[in-house]
């Protein structure tokens, strides 16, 4: 097929934008395994920066994974029933449900800095709570809850769920039985999409965490900021490399899930 000049012009522009996004990622990954980035790659490749990061910041990595998983548990336990209420209260057409939905988005709409300051001013005096990982977890849950509720709600609104529920009810299933036996299994694709988003966002959360953390509750992104500010460029790069390796599988899984659910909806 013969392409017009305009096609190549646009393609060149798209490639330029792509380079703007990808080149720094590649550079930082390379810098993380280069002996001396200032000298260049002729200085040779090494894993000692990665080892140094592992020795210094290993705790932040485990802590971030733990918080992300705890965040996933809480947002699923609170978010799926909440989505059910939003979908069903007064036939899914209530002003109260719309108001709840609107409110839930507030921690995303309002800068994380404000949310974090509010938490500190309200609960900062409870020293034990303030210094524990639970305090960071609360911030993460507030920020990620809507990302669990929305995909689950979307599946609840689009699927044949009410018909199935009515069938179950006519066979004598109670509300709780219907919720756990019919609703939860049928909205699993929504829960999966939400779960991937929640974990990815929690692992990368910085704006809220930076104000909430203490030296003992430092998470991965906070450690990243710390290493950028106080360590060699190579160390920051090696740390970023570890972060990329952690989120790349999540991103791929996310693309795969949206792809499969979309093609299923199209059928």
């Amino acid at each position: 097929m013969k392409r017009s000049f305009r096609f190549y012009l646009q393609l060149a522009f798209a490639l330029l934008v792509c380079a703007f996004l990808i080149v720094p990622i590649v550079l930082s990954m390379l810098a993380g395994v280069t002996d001396n980035f200032f000298v260049g790659w002729s200085s040779g490749f090494t894993l000692r920066w990665v080892e140094q990061v592992w020795a210094t910041y290993q705790q932040t990595i485990w802590r971030s994974i733990a918080i992300a998983l705890a965040c996933l548990v809480v947002t699923t336990a609170a978010g799926v029933p909440l989505a059910y209420m939003l979908a069903r209260h007064r036939g899914g057409n209530s002003r109260l449900a719309r108001a709840f939905e609107e409110l839930l988005m507030m921690p995303v709409a309002v800068p994380g800095l404000a949310t974090a300051l509010a938490l500190i001013m309200a609960y900062g005096q409870y020293r034990e709570f303030r210094g524990s990982l639970l305090f960071v977890l609360v911030g993460h849950v507030l920020f990620t809850l809507p990302f669990m509720v929305r995909p689950v709600l979307a599946v609840m609104q689009s699927s044949q769920l009410p018909v199935l529920e009515e069938a179950a009810a006519s066979l004598g299933a109670g509300l709780w039985q219907r919720f756990f036996g019919i609703v939860v299994p049928n909205v699993f694709s929504g829960i999966l999409a939400g779960a991937l988003m929640v974990v990815t966002l929690s692992i990368g959360e910085f704006n809220i965490t930076w104000m909430l953390h203490t030296p003992l509750t430092m998470t991965l992104p906070v450690g990243l900021a710390d290493s950028y500010a106080s360590m060699r460029l190579e160390v920051g790069s090696a740390y970023t490399l570890i972060f990329f390796l952690m989120i790349i599988p999540l991103l791929i899984a996310m693309q795969w899930v949206t792809h499969t659910t979309r093609s299923r909806v199209r059928l």
Binding site: V74, A77, A78, G79, P81, L82, Y84, M85, L86, H89, F100, L103, L104, M106, P107, A114, T115, A118, L119, M121, A122, Y123, V138, V141, L142, L145, V149, F179
Partner: peptide, 17 residues
Amino acid sequence: FAAPGMTLFLAFWLLPM
């Protein structure tokens, strides 16, 4: 069903705000 989620939200976002 909304109680756990809304309690979290009210206690840790709305009140602090």
